[in-house]
C-alpha cells in the first residue's frame, strides 16, 4: 500500500482522503516526522501539530 500525505495537515496515511481535514492526499511527499507527544514537543509546536502520529515535512 502506498503511503500518502494530507496536503493540509501533512499527516501520513494510506487512504485517498485525510480523515481529519477531508482533503485529497498526495503521493508526492518527502521528509518524515513522528510526533509522540505533541504537548511536550517544540517541533510539533513549530509545525502546529496537535495530534500524535506520522507526518511528512513537505507535501506537493
Amino acid at each position: 500500500m502506498v503511503t500518502k500525505a494530507c496536503t493540509r495537515c501533512h499527516r501520513l496515511l494510506e487512504e485517498d482522503r485525510c480523515a481529519i481535514c477531508n482533503l485529497a492526499t498526495s503521493k508526492n511527499w518527502s521528509g518524515f516526522l513522528i510526533i509522540v507527544d505533541p504537548d511536550e514537543s517544540p517541533i510539533a509546536q513549530e509545525l502546529q501539530i496537535t495530534l500524535p502520529g506520522e507526518y511528512a515535512l513537505r507535501v506537493r
Binding site: S30, F32, L33, V36, D37, P38, L57
Partner: peptide, 19 residues
C-alpha cells in the same frame, strides 16, 4: 523507537528523519 518509547514512558516527544 517511536513505538518503543510510547509504552516505556521515556521523555521522547518526536522523532525526525530529515531527507
Amino acid at each position: 523507537i517511536a513505538r518503543n518509547v510510547k509504552d516505556s514512558g521515556i521523555g521522547v516527544s518526536a522523532v525526525l528523519v530529515p531527507e
